[in-house]
Design a protein around this nucleic acid. Structure first.
Lengths: 201, 201
DNA sequence: GACCGTAACACTAACGGTTAGTGTTTTGTA
DNA sequence: TACAAAACACTAACCGTTAGTGTTACGGTC
Protein backbone atom coordinates (compact mmCIF):
# COMPACT_ATOMS: atom_id res chain seq x y z
CA UNK A 1 0.00 0.00 0.00
CA UNK A 2 1.54 3.17 1.24
CA UNK A 3 0.83 6.16 -0.84
CA UNK A 4 4.43 6.96 -1.70
CA UNK A 5 4.13 9.98 0.53
CA UNK A 6 7.51 10.83 1.23
CA UNK A 7 10.42 12.64 2.51
CA UNK A 8 12.65 10.43 0.44
CA UNK A 9 10.88 11.40 -2.74
CA UNK A 10 11.32 15.02 -1.90
CA UNK A 11 15.00 14.64 -1.24
CA UNK A 12 15.41 12.78 -4.47
CA UNK A 13 13.64 15.52 -6.35
CA UNK A 14 15.85 18.10 -4.68
CA UNK A 15 18.99 16.29 -5.70
CA UNK A 16 17.70 15.93 -9.23
CA UNK A 17 16.92 19.60 -9.44
CA UNK A 18 20.28 20.52 -7.98
CA UNK A 19 21.95 18.51 -10.71
CA UNK A 20 19.79 19.96 -13.45
CA UNK A 21 20.41 23.50 -12.25
CA UNK A 22 24.14 23.03 -12.03
CA UNK A 23 24.21 21.50 -15.48
CA UNK A 24 22.22 24.27 -17.09
CA UNK A 25 24.29 26.94 -15.39
CA UNK A 26 27.57 25.44 -16.57
CA UNK A 27 26.29 24.68 -20.06
CA UNK A 28 25.13 28.24 -20.57
CA UNK A 29 28.30 29.65 -19.10
CA UNK A 30 30.88 27.64 -20.99
CA UNK A 31 28.95 25.91 -23.74
CA UNK A 32 27.57 22.39 -23.78
CA UNK A 33 30.55 20.71 -25.39
CA UNK A 34 33.06 22.42 -23.16
CA UNK A 35 31.49 21.05 -19.99
CA UNK A 36 32.15 17.49 -18.92
CA UNK A 37 29.94 15.21 -16.90
CA UNK A 38 32.52 15.27 -14.16
CA UNK A 39 32.31 19.06 -14.05
CA UNK A 40 28.56 18.93 -13.63
CA UNK A 41 28.76 16.32 -10.94
CA UNK A 42 31.35 18.35 -9.05
CA UNK A 43 29.31 21.54 -9.37
CA UNK A 44 26.21 19.77 -8.08
CA UNK A 45 28.33 18.12 -5.39
CA UNK A 46 27.25 14.60 -6.24
CA UNK A 47 29.07 11.58 -7.60
CA UNK A 48 29.06 10.88 -11.31
CA UNK A 49 27.12 7.67 -10.76
CA UNK A 50 24.50 9.56 -8.81
CA UNK A 51 24.11 11.94 -11.69
CA UNK A 52 23.51 9.03 -14.02
CA UNK A 53 20.98 7.52 -11.67
CA UNK A 54 18.89 10.65 -12.15
CA UNK A 55 19.52 11.31 -15.84
CA UNK A 56 20.01 8.71 -18.51
CA UNK A 57 22.55 10.69 -20.49
CA UNK A 58 24.30 14.00 -20.77
CA UNK A 59 21.76 15.21 -23.30
CA UNK A 60 18.94 14.31 -20.94
CA UNK A 61 20.31 16.95 -18.56
CA UNK A 62 19.09 19.50 -21.05
CA UNK A 63 15.84 17.98 -22.23
CA UNK A 64 14.48 15.87 -19.43
CA UNK A 65 13.07 18.79 -17.52
CA UNK A 66 9.73 20.55 -17.63
CA UNK A 67 9.24 19.19 -21.12
CA UNK A 68 5.52 18.72 -21.50
CA UNK A 69 5.88 18.20 -25.21
CA UNK A 70 4.59 14.66 -25.45
CA UNK A 71 1.74 15.17 -23.00
CA UNK A 72 0.70 18.46 -24.51
CA UNK A 73 0.41 16.95 -27.96
CA UNK A 74 -1.49 13.85 -26.94
CA UNK A 75 -3.79 15.96 -24.77
CA UNK A 76 -4.41 18.31 -27.64
CA UNK A 77 -5.91 15.24 -29.26
CA UNK A 78 -7.70 13.58 -26.38
CA UNK A 79 -8.93 16.66 -24.52
CA UNK A 80 -10.25 18.68 -27.40
CA UNK A 81 -13.88 19.77 -27.56
CA UNK A 82 -16.35 17.01 -28.51
CA UNK A 83 -16.66 17.78 -32.19
CA UNK A 84 -13.61 19.88 -32.78
CA UNK A 85 -11.69 18.67 -35.82
CA UNK A 86 -8.27 17.21 -35.18
CA UNK A 87 -5.90 19.21 -37.31
CA UNK A 88 -6.76 22.72 -36.11
CA UNK A 89 -6.41 21.53 -32.55
CA UNK A 90 -2.95 20.20 -33.31
CA UNK A 91 -2.05 23.35 -35.18
CA UNK A 92 -2.95 25.48 -32.20
CA UNK A 93 -0.84 23.35 -29.88
CA UNK A 94 2.16 23.37 -32.21
CA UNK A 95 1.87 27.13 -32.53
CA UNK A 96 1.93 27.44 -28.76
CA UNK A 97 4.91 25.12 -28.45
CA UNK A 98 6.89 26.92 -31.11
CA UNK A 99 6.10 30.30 -29.61
CA UNK A 100 7.21 28.98 -26.28
CA UNK A 101 10.63 28.11 -27.68
CA UNK A 102 11.18 31.12 -29.87
CA UNK A 103 10.17 34.07 -27.77
CA UNK A 104 10.64 32.64 -24.35
CA UNK A 105 12.93 33.61 -21.57
CA UNK A 106 14.40 30.18 -22.24
CA UNK A 107 15.63 31.24 -25.65
CA UNK A 108 19.32 30.88 -24.73
CA UNK A 109 18.72 27.22 -24.05
CA UNK A 110 17.37 26.69 -27.53
CA UNK A 111 20.27 28.58 -29.02
CA UNK A 112 22.57 26.26 -27.14
CA UNK A 113 20.70 23.24 -28.47
CA UNK A 114 20.94 24.47 -32.02
CA UNK A 115 24.66 24.98 -31.56
CA UNK A 116 25.40 21.38 -30.65
CA UNK A 117 24.93 18.53 -33.11
CA UNK A 118 24.75 16.05 -30.28
CA UNK A 119 21.84 17.91 -28.75
CA UNK A 120 20.06 18.36 -32.06
CA UNK A 121 20.30 14.66 -32.80
CA UNK A 122 19.04 13.80 -29.37
CA UNK A 123 16.09 16.10 -29.76
CA UNK A 124 15.14 14.63 -33.10
CA UNK A 125 15.19 11.09 -31.84
CA UNK A 126 13.10 12.23 -28.89
CA UNK A 127 10.58 13.79 -31.23
CA UNK A 128 10.33 10.57 -33.15
CA UNK A 129 9.20 8.85 -29.98
CA UNK A 130 6.75 11.66 -29.41
CA UNK A 131 5.40 11.10 -32.90
CA UNK A 132 4.67 7.50 -32.05
CA UNK A 133 2.74 8.53 -28.94
CA UNK A 134 0.83 11.08 -30.94
CA UNK A 135 0.02 8.48 -33.57
CA UNK A 136 -1.33 6.19 -30.88
CA UNK A 137 -3.49 8.94 -29.44
CA UNK A 138 -4.91 9.75 -32.85
CA UNK A 139 -5.54 6.12 -33.65
CA UNK A 140 -7.37 5.71 -30.34
CA UNK A 141 -9.91 8.41 -31.07
CA UNK A 142 -13.14 6.67 -32.08
CA UNK A 143 -14.40 9.80 -33.81
CA UNK A 144 -11.81 9.62 -36.54
CA UNK A 145 -11.37 6.09 -37.78
CA UNK A 146 -8.23 6.12 -39.86
CA UNK A 147 -5.73 3.43 -40.64
CA UNK A 148 -2.72 3.09 -38.35
CA UNK A 149 -0.52 4.08 -41.23
CA UNK A 150 -2.40 7.32 -41.81
CA UNK A 151 -2.20 8.12 -38.11
CA UNK A 152 1.51 7.51 -37.99
CA UNK A 153 2.11 9.55 -41.10
CA UNK A 154 0.11 12.51 -39.84
CA UNK A 155 1.88 12.36 -36.50
CA UNK A 156 5.24 12.49 -38.27
CA UNK A 157 4.10 15.38 -40.40
CA UNK A 158 3.07 17.31 -37.31
CA UNK A 159 6.45 16.75 -35.73
CA UNK A 160 8.09 17.82 -38.98
CA UNK A 161 6.10 21.03 -38.84
CA UNK A 162 7.40 21.72 -35.36
CA UNK A 163 10.94 20.90 -36.32
CA UNK A 164 10.96 23.00 -39.47
CA UNK A 165 9.18 25.90 -37.82
CA UNK A 166 11.66 26.05 -34.99
CA UNK A 167 14.45 26.47 -37.51
CA UNK A 168 12.59 28.92 -39.71
CA UNK A 169 12.86 32.68 -39.83
CA UNK A 170 9.13 33.14 -39.31
CA UNK A 171 7.98 30.21 -37.18
CA UNK A 172 4.33 31.17 -37.03
CA UNK A 173 3.93 31.51 -40.78
CA UNK A 174 5.83 28.27 -41.29
CA UNK A 175 3.49 26.36 -39.03
CA UNK A 176 0.49 27.80 -40.85
CA UNK A 177 1.87 26.93 -44.24
CA UNK A 178 2.77 23.36 -43.36
CA UNK A 179 -0.51 22.80 -41.58
CA UNK A 180 -2.41 23.63 -44.72
CA UNK A 181 -0.53 20.78 -46.32
CA UNK A 182 -1.23 18.54 -43.35
CA UNK A 183 -4.89 19.39 -43.48
CA UNK A 184 -5.05 18.33 -47.10
CA UNK A 185 -3.14 15.14 -46.38
CA UNK A 186 -5.48 14.32 -43.53
CA UNK A 187 -8.66 14.89 -45.43
CA UNK A 188 -7.63 12.60 -48.21
CA UNK A 189 -7.47 9.75 -45.70
CA UNK A 190 -11.08 10.20 -44.73
CA UNK A 191 -12.73 6.76 -44.79
CA UNK A 192 -16.19 7.98 -45.91
CA UNK A 193 -15.58 8.84 -49.54
CA UNK A 194 -14.25 12.34 -49.89
CA UNK A 195 -15.30 15.87 -50.47
CA UNK A 196 -14.64 19.01 -48.52
CA UNK A 197 -16.70 18.07 -45.51
CA UNK A 198 -15.45 15.78 -42.83
CA UNK A 199 -17.45 12.96 -41.45
CA UNK A 200 -17.07 13.42 -37.73
CA UNK A 201 -18.51 10.41 -35.97
CA UNK B 1 46.69 17.87 -64.37
CA UNK B 2 46.78 14.24 -63.57
CA UNK B 3 43.66 12.30 -63.58
CA UNK B 4 44.26 10.86 -60.13
CA UNK B 5 45.14 7.59 -61.82
CA UNK B 6 46.68 5.70 -59.22
CA UNK B 7 48.05 2.82 -57.42
CA UNK B 8 47.73 4.76 -54.20
CA UNK B 9 44.03 5.29 -54.70
CA UNK B 10 43.58 1.64 -55.40
CA UNK B 11 45.41 0.62 -52.28
CA UNK B 12 43.37 3.02 -50.27
CA UNK B 13 40.16 1.62 -51.69
CA UNK B 14 41.35 -1.87 -50.93
CA UNK B 15 42.09 -1.01 -47.32
CA UNK B 16 38.74 0.66 -46.98
CA UNK B 17 36.95 -2.35 -48.37
CA UNK B 18 38.94 -4.68 -46.19
CA UNK B 19 37.81 -2.72 -43.16
CA UNK B 20 34.18 -2.60 -44.27
CA UNK B 21 34.14 -6.31 -44.99
CA UNK B 22 35.69 -7.22 -41.68
CA UNK B 23 33.23 -4.96 -39.88
CA UNK B 24 30.19 -6.38 -41.57
CA UNK B 25 31.33 -9.93 -41.01
CA UNK B 26 31.88 -9.39 -37.31
CA UNK B 27 28.71 -7.37 -36.85
CA UNK B 28 26.57 -10.05 -38.45
CA UNK B 29 28.35 -12.80 -36.55
CA UNK B 30 28.23 -11.36 -33.06
CA UNK B 31 25.86 -8.42 -33.25
CA UNK B 32 26.68 -4.78 -33.69
CA UNK B 33 26.83 -3.85 -30.03
CA UNK B 34 28.93 -6.83 -29.09
CA UNK B 35 31.73 -5.88 -31.47
CA UNK B 36 34.18 -3.14 -30.54
CA UNK B 37 36.09 -0.86 -32.82
CA UNK B 38 39.28 -2.52 -31.69
CA UNK B 39 37.91 -5.89 -32.74
CA UNK B 40 37.15 -4.59 -36.21
CA UNK B 41 40.55 -3.00 -36.56
CA UNK B 42 42.26 -6.20 -35.48
CA UNK B 43 40.16 -8.32 -37.86
CA UNK B 44 40.99 -5.99 -40.74
CA UNK B 45 44.60 -5.90 -39.61
CA UNK B 46 44.82 -2.13 -39.46
CA UNK B 47 45.29 0.33 -36.63
CA UNK B 48 42.32 1.92 -34.97
CA UNK B 49 43.36 5.34 -36.21
CA UNK B 50 43.55 4.01 -39.74
CA UNK B 51 40.01 2.74 -39.42
CA UNK B 52 38.86 6.17 -38.38
CA UNK B 53 40.69 7.80 -41.26
CA UNK B 54 38.44 5.81 -43.59
CA UNK B 55 35.17 5.94 -41.66
CA UNK B 56 33.94 8.81 -39.56
CA UNK B 57 32.30 6.67 -36.92
CA UNK B 58 31.40 3.16 -35.97
CA UNK B 59 27.94 3.58 -37.46
CA UNK B 60 29.43 4.76 -40.73
CA UNK B 61 30.97 1.29 -41.07
CA UNK B 62 27.47 0.05 -41.70
CA UNK B 63 25.96 2.86 -43.73
CA UNK B 64 28.76 4.52 -45.63
CA UNK B 65 28.86 1.93 -48.36
CA UNK B 66 27.05 1.61 -51.65
CA UNK B 67 24.33 3.87 -50.30
CA UNK B 68 22.97 5.77 -53.26
CA UNK B 69 20.00 6.98 -51.29
CA UNK B 70 20.65 10.70 -51.49
CA UNK B 71 21.67 10.69 -55.14
CA UNK B 72 18.82 8.44 -56.17
CA UNK B 73 16.26 10.73 -54.61
CA UNK B 74 17.63 13.96 -55.99
CA UNK B 75 18.01 12.36 -59.41
CA UNK B 76 14.46 11.15 -59.30
CA UNK B 77 13.65 14.85 -59.18
CA UNK B 78 16.18 16.31 -61.59
CA UNK B 79 16.28 13.52 -64.17
CA UNK B 80 12.59 12.86 -64.55
CA UNK B 81 10.86 13.22 -67.91
CA UNK B 82 10.21 16.81 -69.01
CA UNK B 83 6.63 17.12 -67.90
CA UNK B 84 6.34 14.28 -65.49
CA UNK B 85 4.78 15.38 -62.22
CA UNK B 86 6.99 15.34 -59.17
CA UNK B 87 5.18 13.18 -56.67
CA UNK B 88 4.69 10.03 -58.77
CA UNK B 89 8.36 10.14 -59.68
CA UNK B 90 9.30 10.28 -56.04
CA UNK B 91 6.84 7.56 -55.19
CA UNK B 92 8.38 5.25 -57.75
CA UNK B 93 11.86 5.85 -56.39
CA UNK B 94 10.82 5.31 -52.79
CA UNK B 95 9.09 2.10 -53.78
CA UNK B 96 12.29 0.91 -55.39
CA UNK B 97 14.37 1.86 -52.37
CA UNK B 98 12.05 0.16 -49.94
CA UNK B 99 11.88 -2.96 -52.05
CA UNK B 100 15.65 -2.97 -52.17
CA UNK B 101 15.83 -3.07 -48.37
CA UNK B 102 13.00 -5.46 -47.66
CA UNK B 103 13.44 -8.29 -50.13
CA UNK B 104 17.13 -7.97 -50.76
CA UNK B 105 19.91 -10.37 -50.11
CA UNK B 106 21.06 -7.65 -47.75
CA UNK B 107 18.07 -8.19 -45.48
CA UNK B 108 20.17 -9.40 -42.53
CA UNK B 109 21.91 -6.05 -42.52
CA UNK B 110 18.63 -4.22 -42.15
CA UNK B 111 17.57 -6.58 -39.39
CA UNK B 112 20.79 -5.74 -37.62
CA UNK B 113 20.13 -2.04 -38.04
CA UNK B 114 16.66 -2.33 -36.63
CA UNK B 115 18.05 -4.21 -33.67
CA UNK B 116 20.41 -1.46 -32.59
CA UNK B 117 19.14 1.88 -31.30
CA UNK B 118 22.46 3.50 -32.10
CA UNK B 119 22.18 2.47 -35.72
CA UNK B 120 18.55 3.49 -35.98
CA UNK B 121 19.34 6.93 -34.62
CA UNK B 122 22.24 7.29 -36.97
CA UNK B 123 20.11 6.35 -39.93
CA UNK B 124 17.41 8.82 -39.02
CA UNK B 125 19.81 11.71 -38.69
CA UNK B 126 21.29 10.70 -42.03
CA UNK B 127 17.86 10.72 -43.62
CA UNK B 128 17.27 14.20 -42.27
CA UNK B 129 20.30 15.40 -44.19
CA UNK B 130 18.99 13.60 -47.23
CA UNK B 131 15.68 15.40 -46.79
CA UNK B 132 17.48 18.73 -46.96
CA UNK B 133 19.19 17.75 -50.21
CA UNK B 134 15.90 16.60 -51.61
CA UNK B 135 14.27 19.86 -50.58
CA UNK B 136 17.00 21.78 -52.38
CA UNK B 137 16.55 19.73 -55.52
CA UNK B 138 12.81 20.31 -55.49
CA UNK B 139 13.22 24.01 -54.86
CA UNK B 140 15.65 24.25 -57.76
CA UNK B 141 13.18 22.89 -60.31
CA UNK B 142 11.87 25.86 -62.28
CA UNK B 143 8.82 23.90 -63.37
CA UNK B 144 7.34 23.79 -59.90
CA UNK B 145 7.68 27.09 -58.15
CA UNK B 146 6.90 26.45 -54.54
CA UNK B 147 8.00 28.16 -51.38
CA UNK B 148 11.12 26.85 -49.66
CA UNK B 149 8.96 25.84 -46.73
CA UNK B 150 6.68 23.74 -48.90
CA UNK B 151 9.69 22.06 -50.49
CA UNK B 152 11.24 21.28 -47.15
CA UNK B 153 7.99 19.94 -45.78
CA UNK B 154 7.37 17.68 -48.76
CA UNK B 155 10.92 16.40 -48.61
CA UNK B 156 10.45 15.49 -44.97
CA UNK B 157 7.17 13.79 -45.73
CA UNK B 158 8.84 11.68 -48.39
CA UNK B 159 11.53 10.61 -45.98
CA UNK B 160 8.84 9.82 -43.42
CA UNK B 161 7.16 7.60 -45.97
CA UNK B 162 10.38 5.69 -46.49
CA UNK B 163 10.99 5.39 -42.78
CA UNK B 164 7.49 4.22 -41.92
CA UNK B 165 7.31 1.86 -44.86
CA UNK B 166 10.54 0.16 -43.94
CA UNK B 167 9.11 -0.61 -40.51
CA UNK B 168 5.69 -1.65 -41.79
CA UNK B 169 4.31 -5.11 -42.39
CA UNK B 170 3.40 -4.31 -45.98
CA UNK B 171 5.93 -1.77 -47.21
CA UNK B 172 4.51 -1.36 -50.67
CA UNK B 173 0.97 -0.63 -49.50
CA UNK B 174 2.32 1.74 -46.85
CA UNK B 175 4.22 3.77 -49.43
CA UNK B 176 1.12 3.97 -51.61
CA UNK B 177 -1.08 5.06 -48.76
CA UNK B 178 1.27 7.76 -47.50
CA UNK B 179 1.94 9.04 -50.99
CA UNK B 180 -1.74 9.69 -51.48
CA UNK B 181 -1.47 11.98 -48.50
CA UNK B 182 1.68 13.55 -49.86
CA UNK B 183 0.06 14.12 -53.20
CA UNK B 184 -2.77 16.00 -51.53
CA UNK B 185 -0.37 18.01 -49.42
CA UNK B 186 1.66 18.92 -52.49
CA UNK B 187 -1.29 19.99 -54.58
CA UNK B 188 -2.55 22.35 -51.94
CA UNK B 189 0.72 24.28 -52.20
CA UNK B 190 0.17 24.96 -55.88
CA UNK B 191 0.89 28.65 -56.49
CA UNK B 192 -1.73 28.98 -59.23
CA UNK B 193 -4.65 30.24 -57.20
CA UNK B 194 -7.52 28.35 -55.60
CA UNK B 195 -9.43 29.42 -52.55
CA UNK B 196 -7.51 29.12 -49.33
CA UNK B 197 -9.32 27.53 -46.47
CA UNK B 198 -8.56 30.26 -44.03
CA UNK B 199 -6.75 33.52 -43.70
CA UNK B 200 -3.55 32.60 -41.92
CA UNK B 201 -2.02 35.68 -40.36
C1' DG C 1 66.69 7.95 -61.84
C1' DA C 2 67.08 10.77 -57.63
C1' DC C 3 64.05 14.05 -55.01
C1' DC C 4 60.43 16.02 -52.44
C1' DG C 5 55.77 16.81 -50.95
C1' DT C 6 51.91 14.36 -49.58
C1' DA C 7 48.91 11.09 -48.04
C1' DA C 8 48.29 6.47 -45.96
C1' DC C 9 49.29 4.05 -42.11
C1' DA C 10 50.89 2.92 -37.39
C1' DC C 11 51.48 3.42 -32.40
C1' DT C 12 50.83 5.35 -27.82
C1' DA C 13 48.06 7.80 -24.86
C1' DA C 14 44.64 10.04 -23.68
C1' DC C 15 39.77 12.26 -23.26
C1' DG C 16 34.84 12.09 -22.30
C1' DG C 17 30.49 9.55 -21.70
C1' DT C 18 28.85 5.60 -19.48
C1' DT C 19 28.56 1.43 -16.51
C1' DA C 20 29.77 -2.43 -13.28
C1' DG C 21 30.96 -3.58 -8.86
C1' DT C 22 31.00 -2.67 -4.14
C1' DG C 23 30.00 -0.55 -0.23
C1' DT C 24 27.71 3.16 3.02
C1' DT C 25 24.07 6.02 4.54
C1' DT C 26 19.31 7.38 4.74
C1' DT C 27 14.45 6.43 5.16
C1' DG C 28 9.92 4.16 5.37
C1' DT C 29 7.73 0.66 7.70
C1' DA C 30 7.11 -3.51 10.66
C1' DT D 1 14.48 -1.12 17.34
C1' DA D 2 15.27 -3.62 13.45
C1' DC D 3 15.12 -4.51 8.63
C1' DA D 4 14.67 -3.92 3.54
C1' DA D 5 14.92 -0.84 0.05
C1' DA D 6 16.62 2.92 -2.15
C1' DA D 7 19.79 6.84 -2.64
C1' DC D 8 24.34 7.87 -2.75
C1' DA D 9 29.42 7.38 -3.14
C1' DC D 10 33.84 5.68 -4.86
C1' DT D 11 37.03 3.14 -7.83
C1' DA D 12 38.01 1.39 -11.95
C1' DA D 13 37.11 0.28 -16.03
C1' DC D 14 34.94 -0.05 -21.04
C1' DC D 15 34.18 2.02 -25.44
C1' DG D 16 34.21 5.36 -29.16
C1' DT D 17 37.04 8.83 -30.66
C1' DT D 18 41.03 12.01 -31.25
C1' DA D 19 45.67 14.24 -30.72
C1' DG D 20 50.33 13.77 -31.29
C1' DT D 21 54.15 11.78 -33.54
C1' DG D 22 56.40 9.15 -36.60
C1' DT D 23 57.26 6.00 -40.58
C1' DT D 24 56.52 4.37 -45.08
C1' DA D 25 55.09 4.34 -49.90
C1' DC D 26 53.65 6.62 -53.70
C1' DG D 27 53.22 10.39 -57.57
C1' DG D 28 54.84 14.07 -60.06
C1' DT D 29 58.89 16.69 -61.31
C1' DC D 30 63.51 17.95 -62.44
Amino acid sequence: MTVPTGRRERKKAVTRQKIADAALRLFLERGYDAVGIRDVAAEADVAVTTLFSHFASKEALVFEQGEDFEQRLTRAVTDRAPHEPLIPALRREIQALVRHCAADSAAPVWRMIDASPALRDYEESMRRRHAESLATAIAADPGLSRTPTACRAIARFVIDAYSLARAAADPKATVDEIFQMIEAAWEVTCPSAHSTGRAGS
